[in-house]
Design a protein around this nucleic acid. Structure first.
Length: 434
DNA sequence: TCTGGGGTCCTAGGACCC
DNA sequence: TCTGGGGTCCTAGGACCC
């Protein structure tokens, strides 16, 4: 059995923890650059504000109903997530952190302690609320896909009080009949439309299909597994998260710019800054990478015909996590991509081919000229320590522009006008009482 | 005027090898 | 006219997720 614990409207809930005035009023949190709505309180959903809608499209609605609007505050959300996950890890032996606001708990072998799965789930909800003030819902079922489905029903129907347990075949089929087919985990827009067109309207309709049918119409083994999981036959194992973090297989840093950019040096400033950030994330999970991709993109909503983005990739002679190495490679890629006269709106850096540290590898530095040889690991460790202690970008490579001349913001930096304080991660912004 | 960011897994097709 | 079969690796692209 799996339990899926999902935090309700997580970003909005995080904002509410430190601002009680936000309770029971419509609240939304925006994506980077204050572009789209990515988290909504129940009250905001009731106003018809859709997930992912561009802010400018709902501006009138927001003003009319005095919706409280926040830029995203990832320092706060990341820290609150860590607190929730740490508690969950203390309750069961195995937790898989699935995303910033969701975790699967492995209940295998715990059945003898779980005479009442409902009361176990209610205890978890109550404790998460007491310790973090974050509301959650819990779905319990024999497969991950059914646990997601149970969680969906727990969120949707107030009468269930935040918990749905599907521990019998009868309950599973009852639940499958309640859920529209596009709400099934793994059914997105494309398949949703296709299934509806074929007359399959509920999760139960899909669960009634054969594996062979799913293999043919829903992307091969992915579809076959999906149907099996709906039928209560587990195909997805629990992947327990070691040390309470997620080890990524690729690491990216991509951003839309605050304004369109054309000059090579402006693009380079952005790409170097993104590369530095990606390298920090890489070192934070103690990995190295040997494949780096850079892309730059024009305004995809503008008159430019597709493709809007161009990318280039290189395989490094050896895996590295050194910022100067990676920035040097990124710069070479940008030289290949940048075209004079074009107006760019976005850029990104993606690191692939991640390896854990301690695996044998050749040293890249042996192949570089003497002048380029950094003091490698020790230097990077020091850099990360300084930035952690004195604030992001306190120390950085010279090309990574985070500020323009005379303290103006770097030209690529976007909007973030409505950000709440870093209540839990910055000494300067701690909660003040009295 | 304004339109996010960061991930995963799978498939198909080409190059290449024995 | 005949002109194998199977395996691996790589890349591009699709679909999905939060």
């Amino acid at each position: 059995m799996f339990a899926l614990v999902d935090c309700n409207n997580f970003y909005v809930s995080c904002e509410r923890v430190f601002q009680p005035r936000l309770a029971n009023v419509p609240v939304v949190v925006l994506s980077n650059n204050d572009g789209c709505v990515v988290s909504r309180s129940a009250e905001a959903k009731a106003l018809g504000i859709r997930m992912g809608v561009p802010l400018f499209q709902v501006r009138p609605l927001i003003e009319q109903h005095k919706v409280q609007v926040f830029s995203s505050n990832y320092a706060l959300y990341g820290d609150m997530s860590y607190r929730v996950m740490s508690y969950l890890a203390s309750v069961v032996p195995e937790v898989e952190i699935y995303s910033i606001d969701e975790a699967f708990l492995g209940l295998h072998g715990m059945e003898r302690y779980l005479i009442q799965p409902e009361s176990f789930a209610q205890k978890v909800r109550k404790q998460v609320m007491r310790r973090t003030h974050i509301p959650t819902c819990v779905g319990i079922a024999p497969t991950k896909t059914l646990a997601k489905l149970a969680n969906y029903l727990a969120k949707k129907t107030v009468a269930f009080n935040g918990v749905v347990v599907l521990d019998s075949v009868e309950r599973q089929w009852w639940a499958l009949r309640q859920v529209p087919v596009e709400e099934v985990w793994g059914v997105g827009r494309q398949y949703g439309q296709k299934l509806r067109a074929m007359g399959l309207n509920t999760a139960a309709d899909l669960a009634g299909c054969s594996e062979a049918w799913a293999r043919k119409h829903m992307g091969g083994v992915v579809g076959a597994r999906l149907v099996r999981e709906l039928q209560g036959k587990p195909c997805h194992q629990l992947h327990p998260s070691e040390d309470g973090t997620l080890a990524r297989k690729s690491i990216a840093c991509t951003r839309s710019f605050g304004r369109p950019l054309s000059k090579f040096d402006d693009l380079l400033g952005a790409v170097a800054a993104f590369t530095s950030r990606a390298a920090e994330k890489l070192r934070a999970q103690d990995s190295t990478a040997y494949i780096i991709t850079v892309f730059i993109g024009q305004n995809r909503f503008g008159p430019t015909p597709p493709p809007y983005t161009h990318s280039a990739q290189i395989t490094l002679p050896a895996a590295t996590n050194s910022t100067p190495d990676l920035v040097r490679a990124a710069r070479a890629l940008l030289v290949r991509l940048w075209q004079p006269g074009l107006v760019y709106k976005k850029a990104g850096v993606i690191l692939d081919g991640l390896e854990g540290h301690g695996q044998p590898q050749l040293s890249l530095f042996e192949q570089l000229p003497e002048v380029q040889r950094p003091q490698s690991a020790a230097l990077m460790r020091k850099l990360d320590q300084l930035n952690s202690r004195f604030g992001p970008n306190c120390v950085r490579v010279a090309t990574a522009a985070v500020a323009g001349p005379k303290g103006t913001p770097a030209p690529w930096l976007g909007q973030k006008r409505l950000c709440s304080p870093e209540r839990t991660t910055s000494w300067h912004e701690l909660w003040e009482i009295g």
